[in-house]
């Protein structure tokens, strides 16, 4: 199950991420998860949001450079070794991961994965009986 992820190009300037957050807040867009990748003078803010289309539009209007990519989001139990089990499946099948980020709460952990080959990754994860999350289940969080 593919989830749309919104990426925003931000220069390394104080307050820039807050501006993104403020704009989304003003338009009632909720962030389910996000991570920031950075380099020397810019960063890329990657987010899973409640309304990708609207978020993309309002950020574009505010002159942000944005792109939308698809990722896979899965949930697993928040215990030692559970992430390793999943990554083992992917490694065995030679699936390359560009980046991933995760967050956990109580007994559950959720992982966002951006593989090079998304379809193959989903296929393998399903066969490994991983719990893949849909847009709806994400919204209920």
């Amino acid at each position: 199950m593919k989830i749309k992820q919104l990426s925003v190009f931000v220069e390394n300037k104080t307050g820039r991420i807050n501006e993104v957050a403020q704009i989304l807040g003003r338009h009632g867009v909720n962030m389910t998860a996000f991570s920031l990748a950075d380099s020397a003078d810019f960063g890329i803010l990657r987010m899973i949001v409640s309304d990708v289309k609207q978020a993309e539009q309002v950020l574009r209007e505010a002159h942000f450079g944005v792109s939308v990519t698809e990722v896979v989001c899965l949930s697993c139990s928040n215990v030692p070794g559970s992430l390793s089990n999943i990554l083992d499946c992917l490694a065995k099948e030679q699936v390359f991961i560009e980046y991933m980020y995760a967050f956990s709460e109580g007994e559950t952990a959720r992982v966002v994965i951006r593989p090079t080959d998304l379809d193959r990754c989903i296929d393998i994860l399903s066969r490994c009986s991983c719990h893949l999350m849909s847009r709806n289940t994400l919204d209920q969080m």
């Binding site: 992820q5 990426s7 190009f9 990748a37 950075d38 380099s39 890329i44 944005v66 792109s67």
Partner: peptide, 16 residues
């Protein structure tokens, strides 16, 4: 310079 819309990426490596 500004990157043109449509060429932004989610990956740092692509931007670099």
């Amino acid at each position: 310079v500004e990157v043109r819309d449509g060429f932004y990426s989610d990956e740092i490596s692509k931007m670099l």
